[in-house]
Amino acid sequence: MSKVEVFQQQPSGAVAAESPFHFSRQRNPLAPAKGEAGVIMAERPFLTHLILRGTPEVLLGGVRNVTGLTLPQTPCSMNSKEDKSLQWLAPDEWLLILPPGSEFSTEKALRGELGDGSYAIVNVSGGQTVLELSGPNAREVLMKSTSCDLHPRTFPEGRGVSTVFAKTGAIIRRPDAQRWELVIRRSFADYLYRWLLSAGAEYGITTQER
């Protein structure tokens, strides 16, 4: 067991949580797309985001035991299973995304498994959120805003990159053939929401509550 003190960072039930897009959605009520929507934008709020840092040798076994996911060691790749995903960010850094509310239990379990090894686990759930794009024109909308090559030939399923997006930074991921995910900073959420509404207007964009 590690000596690091871990505490429950989520307030108990009495405090209502508001997603980073709470006010964006009120200020920009969407007119329904004329005809069939080319892009469907959906937020996946309140997910658990944990940054894992350390060498693969230290993290591999413990992470597999706790999450059931294998640490991806190929650059710019991610492993996902159901609603969990683990993405390579740097040779010593990974992003673990889990269902909402599992920060505390997961971090405790990981520290229990990994013991006193040399590693770091940081809960960044409050700092970033996931925006999901699907629909026939999702890739075109993303292509307008990034210099990263998103062609299926170079951007297959299971790839995720951290790159420049709409003059700011974002992680672009492709969990499966139908969906694109953007992991964005909370403070840029409203900006990117409006940017994507504008970029997607020509294809017909609609938002979906999940």
Binding site: P75, C76, A90, P91, S147, C148, V161, T163, V164
Partner: peptide
């Protein structure tokens, strides 16, 4: 605009990154 090879990501990315 250049494409620069990052030895850690092991691929070429645009200069603005």
């Amino acid at each position: 605009m250049f494409y620069i090879h990052c030895p850690y990501c092991n691929e070429r990315r645009s200069e603005e990154e």
